[in-house]
């Protein structure tokens, strides 16, 4: 189950309205490499993970991503909450505004609505962990791209925090992959699915799955 804590993982306090920047940052809410996809990806993949360390990592990172989704929502909300019509037009925010006003809607920067097609849950831990490693790097690049367009220190600060978390998560997923392959017969890494073909685990260290 999940319990809500009435607190952001890292504080967000933005003073200057900036709808043009909000339009870019919304991509990390519901875009192809955004936090919504990240949380759904890990929280879905964890069910078929064969080792306890992997179940724990995917549960905890998936949960943390929900906290990041909330932070991105707070950033976009604060960047747009005191908008006037002139700012909306000048920033090109009118296309978002006409459908969502200043509400927070999961879409990409280009306005494409969120879709589960952004994620995969393949039921093979080697495949899924490779996707997770790639996902963290894609999210990191997206944050790097956001930073290129961002000169407000109040926005940069939480964005840099989120970027750093992608790097840490990448490290943890790398350790997950290592933990898994260490327990497999090295001849069989890609000949079997460790979640489906249980015989591929080394006999000497075969654990209760």
């Amino acid at each position: 189950m999940f319990v809500y804590e009435k607190q952001l993982q890292y504080p967000v306090k933005i003073k200057i309205t900036n709808p043009a920047l909000a339009k870019l940052i919304i991509s990390q809410y519901g875009g192809p490499d955004g936090e919504l996809g990240a949380s759904l990806r890990y929280l879905s993949q964890r069910f078929s993970m064969p080792l306890p360390e992997l179940k724990a990592t995917l549960t905890d990172i998936g949960t943390e991503e929900l906290g990041h989704l909330e932070m991105i929502g707070a950033i976009v909300y604060q960047l747009t909450k005191d908008l006037n019509e002139k700012q909306i037009k000048e920033a090109g925010f009118d296309q978002y505004f006409v459908d969502h006003t200043a509400g927070i809607y999961p879409s990409s920067a280009a306005g494409v609505p969120f879709t589960a097609a952004y994620i995969e849950s393949k039921g093979d831990p080697i495949t899924d962990l490779h996707e997770d490693l790639a996902a963290e790097q894609k999210a990191r690049t997206t944050y790097d791209n956001i930073i290129r367009f961002c000169d407000d220190p109040d926005v940069l600060d939480p964005i840099r925090f989120l970027r750093e978390r992608e790097v840490v998560h990448y490290q943890r997923f790398g350790e997950n992959l290592r933990l898994l392959t260490d327990k497999l017969d090295s001849k069989n890494f890609y000949a079997f699915n460790p979640s489906f073909d249980k015989a591929c685990f080394k006999k000497a260290r075969n654990r209760k799955l």
Binding site: Q7, L8, Q9, Y10, P11, K13, E53, A56, T57, D60, I61, E64, V168, R172, E175, N176, L179
Partner: peptide, 24 residues
């Protein structure tokens, strides 16, 4: 805000250590 920032700093350290412990 000052008190909440202090709390979130410690809570973040806790979350990060817990994640490290998942693989160690």
């Amino acid at each position: 805000e000052i008190l909440l920032k202090k709390i979130s700093t410690y809570k973040f350290a806790i979350i990060d250590i817990q994640l490290f412990l998942d693989t160690h």
